[in-house]
Nucleic acid binder design. Structure first.
Lengths: 203, 203
DNA sequence: ATTCGTATCAAACAAATGTTTGAAAGTCAA
DNA sequence: TTGACTTTCAAACATTTGTTTGATACGAAT
């Protein structure tokens, strides 16, 4: 966690705290305190709090950008969709992974700071394209663009729900039946729900 | 909008601004400014900013609590589900309704202030019970409790997605194809997607 | 050893912000 | 009218918070 590079330490601490408390809620003093650097470091390395925030978001996003999502040609579209869902559920909910990258991005998605819209677009659109491609294979030929988009939202909505509304899910389910304990099962549920919704109507 | 009662005016203004900017982001000066009262009013009527926030959330929630969601006995479960979905989509996205009640509650759901958890439970659980009841009718007998819950989350996830991630939806879809322009069509998509997911597998 | 650019630090600064005060104005009953 | 109570107000207060400053230590090149 604690890197020797002070700039990186600030970036990491900022990411965690911004993700947890938002831009306004986070204070530079708490950040530099966690990073174990002097308060002037934020000005020295990042000019001001806002630039630090932007850099922190970029930092978190570029970590994710490394992981690719691709399949050998000929892979059935249903398999791709299942992978896509499982990948994102793990990405967003797996307790083993440091969650702040995703949570910070979630914040940006619900309240984009105009400075970051462009960046978000860089990260989100590629993923969106992947899902769009899968759905193009999966849905009947001639399905209108608009309906493909709504379908994609229905899928992402199911996934992101558990990330955005985690506290309420835990509250409603109780601890003894915590869905976050087994993210694999959670992903499987979403996969099945979605695949049934996409299959041809029975009669 | 502007009531003669100053306490109510503050409550209304606080609701709007808290919903838009969150607890930290909102300033009492902006609130009292919009409510057209002196700054000391917040102390006079609500002790401090935090109590004001709590009261504002309660105020928003109790407005909603009035609207009931009930059907004559014998109504098919699929109809109830469709109503339930359409009601909430309209509730959350219809531009004609003042949206801040819902948006403020969304905030509480993703970052509950411990002072409000109890209240949230009062509002959310009843709705949760309604949906749970519908699913109990709709899903095969003997479906485990856990799976009913996950199904409910799949439905709510689809709905809340459009509320929470509105900026990104607009960004991805472009204005010419804005889903929020026709919330009825949006609700219909979710209803169809969900009903297909709940129907018996084909073979 | 001197010099120059970099990095770090404690301290202070200025602005924003939640909160309080004490007086003035208003209300209403006796 | 008097008096008690509520409501409203401008001003000040105290704290938090983002930002800056000027000094100091460090390291490498001349």
């Amino acid at each position: 966690m604690s890197v020797d590079n002070p700039r990186e330490r600030v970036l990491e601490a900022a990411g965690e705290i911004f993700a947890e408390k938002g831009f306004k809620g986070a204070t530079v003093r708490e950040i530099i305190d966690r990073a174990c650097v002097n308060i002037a470091a934020v000005n020295y390395y990042f000019r001001d709090k806002e630039r630090l925030y932007i850099e922190a978001v970029k930092h978190g996003a570029c970590v994710d950008a490394d992981e690719h999502l691709a399949w050998p040609s000929g892979t059935p579209a249903t398999d791709k969709l299942a992978d896509f869902i499982r990948y994102h559920v793990a990405r967003l909910l797996d307790p083993h992974k440091p969650a702040w990258h995703a949570r910070l991005m979630m914040r940006e998605l619900s309240q984009p700071s105009d400075a970051c819209t462009e960046l978000v677009r860089e990260y989100i659109e590629p993923k969106s394209k992947i899902l769009g491609g899968i759905l193009e294979e999966l849905l009947p030929k001639g399905t209108p663009r608009r309906r493909r988009a709504l379908t994609a939202f229905s899928i992402m909505g199911q996934i992101l729900f558990y990330c955005t509304h985690r506290p309420i899910v835990s509250l409603l389910m109780g601890e003894y039946d915590d869905p976050y304990a087994d993210t694999g099962a959670l992903a499987d549920h979403i996969v099945r729900f979605t695949l049934r919704a996409l299959s041809e109507p029975k009669a």
